[in-house]
Design a protein around this nucleic acid. Structure first.
Lengths: 351, 351
DNA sequence: CTGAAAGCGCTTACAG
DNA sequence: CTGAAAGCGCTTACAG
């Protein structure tokens, strides 16, 4: 069974031609008599020829340059701090291959900065681009530019159906909302209310969070448990003071609240309020394994965090782009990573 | 920054020697004047030389033979059906390299069969072995035989501290018990009881399940919630009839039971009973994503399944063994895979 | 339309 | 102790 691999040489000698001719046939470079072609093809097939990968790579020296365009991680928003790690891991694995990666970051609160950075990317003449399409219309026009230049691109974190992206690697946002719905439903006592909190400064985030909220709400009609109310609260600001005031008000209006879902990654801000207010019996559920969230998970204020494997997103994005460029391997277009349910007892495995 | 990689040739010309000499220095094959050695080493260092992986593999043709020794998947126990898939995935990725894998399976209810199969393994003169040490004393003596023959071995599913294994990839069994404890604690109403069920035919399994049970129980003293009792039930048989009788009895004796933990992979057997008895409000929590368990998860009878990524265990075992054999890369010795919390809403991502 | 040859970077056996 | 050369399997430019 582990019979030796056939080589060009084997095909050549069996077909009575030189390896040059065999290669021409196999690579469809033409200039081969039809009769020869057929014969060679048949023998290659019979021998189940597959090229020796090592020799191929050793020989073809064309280097590919990948450029990533992602939001920069800030103190206010550390969600994006994991993404570079995934790219680093991918690049380490791909070290033997002739590829380079240039990482460009933009300010996710500033569309003009994004526009600037797209120009920087184009100037680098990338062979492939990995990006997070935070700003919708700006991203669409950037992607159509890439398309015009025949530069393939892979999305992480979100995707735009308006563009011809090579692949998307990331969360199934709607479904991650449903998972939150199910978890909240399990831990909320009957007839108690649930508060759904959106904290978002800009429109882009709101769109994303809306999808989660839709998924979350979609869980409930089917469920026979829990008849409490689902109360939505939008907080258009990330300041602790604003948050405190909003939540205070919500609690006063709705004394039946037993659980809170935070649709974005800032659950630590709510948890911090809950802790200060001594509301230990409230179930807090949020998203993303930020250090500050994990601290509240471990101290018991946050019951569940839902993870979306940011590091794996970029890791896979780089790998897929590489395989596409180097070996013409067309990737699975939509790859939804698992929605991880994380508690204080299993969180250590995820960090 | 992506400056071109240094080659032997570069080092050779800078040191004023031939590439043969450079190679001798770098591989510590001796027969080099100390002065030359030092000079070459310094230059190699300055150039940050790392060998071209592709060229190395292309040249060194020594094939490595890995043998796996795992329980066979049976109709009664499909847990082991995922493990071959992980090995297959690893082998597909490693297709370009000269390795072979021979899979040997044994009957996990028959120690004599295991002993027979260990002989088969040795006869294959493997360069490395991947095994699940189900039978403790038999595995220990087999492993010491491997050791004597300088054959490295990697454990999956469990490990034996008595042996000099190269690596373990698998669950943190105790911690997976704690995760179960936490989940049960979250969904069990106050003052209600929890039933812990061990279903095991043979001693080996009991040992494994005991560790989970210990982890499970360890969760409770710390918790301030839930003051119900924790009732243990051992069922020394996997027949549905025996199970029915045992559970019936447990329920009659303890009407306060609100939740059931099954410490092994056979929660579908309990779920089937619960469904038939119409006990919809009982929380059932079990382990492992067997098809039959997943069916009950989706139908709502099982609330949580805890997954241990069996496929990833063997995938990583093969990869680590390969990297050790081919590139002398000593792996992380203990690799605990994440304890996955799986519900009906996120299960599809895991299969 | 086809073949012979050089060369990718490394390893190894051989000659000196 | 050191160098020159062959060869792993493939690709590519060149000669005919």
């Amino acid at each position: 069974m582990p019979k030796k691999k056939a080589r060009l040489k084997d095909i050549a000698s069996l077909s009575g031609v030189s390896i040059g001719t065999v290669d021409r046939v196999l690579h469809e470079r033409g200039e081969v008599a039809e009769k020869t072609r057929k014969r060679v093809l048949k023998i290659a097939n019979d021998l189940r020829y597959t090229p020796n990968f090592m020799a191929q790579v050793l020989k073809t020296k064309r280097p590919f340059n990948i450029v990533s365009l992602l939001p920069e991680s800030t103190e206010e928003n550390t969600f994006w701090s994991k993404h570079p790690l995934g790219m680093k891991r991918a690049m380490t694995e791909l070290d033997p291959f002739p590829i380079t990666l240039t990482q460009i970051n933009f300010d996710m609160l500033d569309e003009n900065d994004f526009l600037e950075k797209t120009k920087t990317v184009l100037k680098l003449h990338p062979d492939g681009v990995v990006l997070a399409p935070i700003f919708k219309s700006e991203s669409i026009s950037f992607c159509s530019g890439l398309k015009r230049n025949h530069i393939p691109f892979v999305f992480v974190d979100g995707y735009l159906t308006e563009t011809e992206f090579l692949a998307y690697i990331g969360e199934d946002v709607f479904q991650s909302g449903r998972v939150a719905g199910q978890l909240i439903n399990m831990v909320t006592p009957e007839h108690k209310d649930v508060l759904i909190v959106n904290i978002a400064k800009n429109l882009q985030n709101i769109h994303h969070l809306d999808n989660r909220t839709k998924g979350f709400l979609s869980y409930f009609p089917e469920s026979d448990q829990n008849n409490g109310r689902l109360i939505k609260l939008n907080i258009p600001d990330t300041k602790s003071e604003t948050i405190k005031i909003s939540i205070d008000k919500a609690f006063r209006k709705n004394p039946g609240i037993a659980s809170i879902l935070i649709t974005g990654s800032k659950s630590y801000k709510i948890a911090s309020y809950i802790e200060a207010a001594g509301l230990k019996s409230i179930n807090v559920i949020g998203y993303d394994l930020l250090d500050s969230n994990i601290a509240f998970l471990k101290s018991g204020i946050i019951k569940f965090l839902i993870g979306q494997r940011p590091e794996e997103q970029t890791y896979k994005a780089i790998k897929k782009m590489f395989e596409y460029l180097s070996f013409n391997k067309t990737p699975e277009r939509m790859e939804y990573l698992p929605v991880d349910v994380v508690t204080s007892e299993n969180v250590d495995f995820f960090i």
